[in-house]
Amino acid sequence: DTLSIHQLAAQGDLNQLMKYLQQGDFLIDLQDEWGFTPLMWAAAFGEIAVVKYALEKGADPHILGKERESALALASVRGYTDIIVLLLDHGVDVNIYDWNGGTPLLYAARGNHVKCVETLLAKGADLTMEADSGYSPMDLAVALGFKRVQQAIENHVLKLLQSNRV
């Protein structure tokens, strides 16, 4: 009974979360001390049922944490592709960046999440955006030896080149 709405979201406890929200739907966008909403906690821990429910309840997927953390970036760190698709379908910016100069694509590449990289690229992620340290998604893939991520980026570039041919 004492768990916060953020903990309930992270733990995927949909029943308790629904009970909590009986106090008022506005609580769905309640921010914790880091500025994180229940949706952000659920996205970070891969709790897709909670993400779906929160979005149905009108949770705002655009809210950023105190260091510009986004639900999309948090899902990308761990490679939760299905959550990424849901968030993008709700209109979040695929190229949102944070204090680190981090974009969802950079986090997905850093984590070797190939499917996630492919999805973000297909949804228009900018592969030229670099982290503050100057690393692009391709630089990361090469530096870390993530061949499949490298290949996914190369395939995307080839597609772009082909579609630009007159």
């Binding site: 768990l3 733990q11 994180f36 944070d98 680190n100 100069g101 981090g102």
Partner: peptide, 21 residues
């Protein structure tokens, strides 16, 4: 029984441990 509390999510330093560009 109550599940343990989850620690706050965070975004990692992307280039930690990588050589400078």
């Amino acid at each position: 029984t109550q599940m343990p509390l989850y620690t706050s999510p965070s975004l990692p330093n992307i280039t930690l441990g990588l050589p400078a560009t």
